[in-house]
């Protein structure tokens, strides 16, 4: 190999450098010209609205719109007449821009924010069943004897949701609890899909009351198992006191119907186990 390089250099002096440069350069030039010519011969007309919409979209490729990526959504809007307001990360600003491009009216949906329906999951407030030493992933942990934590409904705390979040909206505090940044969360739902315990739901931004538990166990069990000591025991007091009947208790767990909820906060006040939290009063 060394011979190949050294011999021509010695034999022909400076032309040994000039010659390869000229030849490779002209080869590149010829190919470039052919390609430039070919792009004129095979022009592809793309609907320019698609390009414009791709530019407007946030480019996170999160899949909240139900399409594979932003360009897929842009194509679906133009070619299949998909709704204009499906982009969760973009919010109202993007909806308005898309509506301008398409020349249609569209109203933005209310922004939704993810909430983890469990108050356990940290280092200090989880009761363990056994010491899990496997892969650091919730999905893997929950498959071994119903998970390492005593409550088989609650957060196992291996941060699959943090890893899934493309917007850096979920952080872990010093106690190992996951905190959702309500400003950064775009409501794309990536964490909702990835949580193997289905603890995360998207809740309209204006709502401040959440039932911070997902245990479907019968009464004494949630209290014994919950590491945070704030389980929903399914007593139904909140359902009775709710002025608009937005809460239903099914399978020993209360759930709020946010389409009826008026965000009054009565449920949070009456809950005997403090499983319902109200962001307005608790901050």
């Amino acid at each position: 190999m060394l011979n190949l390089i050294v011999v021509p250099l010695a034999a022909t002096g400076t032309s040994a450098i000039v010659l390869p440069v000229v030849i490779m350069g002209s080869l590149g030039l010829i190919f470039g010209l052919i390609l430039a010519f070919a792009s004129k011969v095979f022009p592809v007309t793309v609907d320019e609205r698609i390009e414009k919409i791709i530019e407007v979209l946030p480019g996170a490729n999160c899949g909240a719109c139900g399409q594979p990526g932003c360009s897929g959504y842009a194509t679906a809007i133009v070619n299949e007449g998909k709704e204009l307001n499906l982009c969760a990360p973009g919010g109202p600003a993007v909806v308005e821009k898309i509506a301008q491009i398409m020349g249609k009216d569209a109203t933005a949906k209310e922004r939704k924010i993810a909430f983890i329906h469990c108050s356990s999951g940290g280092k200090n407030n989880t009761k363990w069943k056994y010491a899990y030493q496997g892969m650091e992933s919730c999905l893997s942990a929950v498959n071994i004897a119903d998970g390492p934590n005593l409550c088989s409904w609650g957060c196992v705390g291996f941060n699959d949701c943090v890893a899934a979040c493309k917007f850096d909206a979920i952080s872990v505090d010093e106690n190992g609890m996951r905190i959702i940044d309500r400003e950064k969360c775009t409501g794309c739902g990536a964490c909702v899909t990835v949580c193997p315990r289905k603890l995360i739901m998207l809740i309209p931004e204006s709502m401040n009351v959440f039932i911070s538990c997902s245990s479907k166990d019968k009464n004494p069990l949630p209290k014994q198992n919950c590491g945070a000591d704030k389980p929903c025991i399914g007593c139904g007091l909140c359902a009775k006191k709710c002025p608009v009947q937005a809460i239903t208790v099914e399978n020993n767990i209360a759930r709020i119907d946010y389409s009826k909820c008026t965000d009054c906060g009565t449920c949070a006040t009456v809950c005997p186990t403090k499983a319902i939290i109200n962001l307005k009063t608790e901050g």
Binding site: V7, P20, I23, L27, G28, F31
Partner: peptide, 15 residues
């Protein structure tokens, strides 16, 4: 002809 066989990889990739 130009004794540039050592450029084969580069030239082929370009082509």
């Amino acid at each position: 002809p130009f004794e540039l066989e050592y450029l084969q990889t580069l030239a082929f990739i370009l082509t």
